[in-house]
Amino acid sequence: MVALSQARVLMLATDGFEQSELFDPREALLDAGAQVTLASLKPDPITGEKGGEKGESITPDLTVDAVDTADYDALVLPGGVGNPDKLRMNKRAVEIVREFFDADKVIAAICHAPWLLIEADVVDGKRATSWPSLRTDLANAGASVLDEEVVVDGKLITSRNPGDIPAFNRALIHCLELEMAVDA
C-alpha cells in the first residue's frame, strides 16, 4: 500500500450535500493520510442533509473561484439533490470538473453528483452509475450506465447512494494509491 500523505484531494460541495457522502469519504481520505480541501460557492458554512432533514454544517476551506486544479490529485463530488443541482449552475464549478478530467486526474462522484459530470460533458463513452433518477441523463450524455455499487472506468469512479459509500471509499483510495505510486 502506498502512503497517501502526499495526496491532495479537492471536495466540491454546497448547501444540500448528502451528509454521509461528504463526511464519510472525507474521513476515509484523512485516515489514509491524504490532505483534503473543501471548496464551495461561498466562504460561509454549508449545511448538509440527512434523510431529507437538515444535517451538519462544515466551513469550506476556499471558494470555487480560488481553486487551482493543478494543486490537486483528485476530485470528490458528494451527492444530495440540491448540492450538485446548484453546483452545475455555477460556471467555475463545472470548469473545475472539466479541468480534472482533461488533466486525467481521479474524479469520484456519488449519488446525484454525476449531474456535474454530465454538465461538464465528461461521461460520453464512459461506464458510470448514479442515483436511479439520473441514469437516463447519464445515458443521454453518452455513458454506459450500470447498476452496481461502484463503477470504475479509468480514473472515473461513480456510486449510486449512501449505502455504497464503503465500496466508493475503497475504490477512491485504491485509485489514489495507484496514482501516487505512478507519481512517486
Rank of each mutant, 00 (worst) to 15 (best):
P25N: 11
K155I: 11
F23D: 10
G142T: 07
V150C: 04
N140A: 14
A13V: 07
L117T: 00
N169R: 03
L12A: 12
G55S: 09
M11W: 01
A66F: 02
M11R: 01
V151I: 11
G163S: 13
L176R: 02
V9M: 11
R8P: 06
D71W: 08
A66E: 13
P114H: 03
W115V: 02
V97Y: 01
D104M: 02
E49V: 13
D71N: 14
E177H: 04
I96H: 04
D85P: 02
L138A: 09
A32I: 06
V9K: 04
D124C: 12
D31Q: 13
S130T: 03
L77A: 08
D24Q: 15
A139R: 13
A93P: 10
P114S: 08
E179T: 12
C175M: 12
A139V: 08
V81H: 05
S20K: 10
E21L: 06
L156T: 02
L172S: 00
E149L: 02
P60M: 09
A108R: 01
E49L: 09
K126F: 05
D61W: 07
A184Q: 14
V106A: 00
V94G: 00
K54R: 15
A108H: 03
E18I: 03
E18N: 05
F23H: 10
I118V: 15
S133K: 11
K42T: 15
P25L: 08
A93N: 12
I165N: 00
A103C: 08
E177P: 05
I173S: 01
G52M: 09
P78K: 05
N90L: 07
A66I: 04
G52E: 10
K105W: 13
D15I: 11
L176Q: 03
S144I: 08
I110F: 03
Q19R: 04
Q35Y: 05
V150K: 02
G154A: 10
D24T: 15
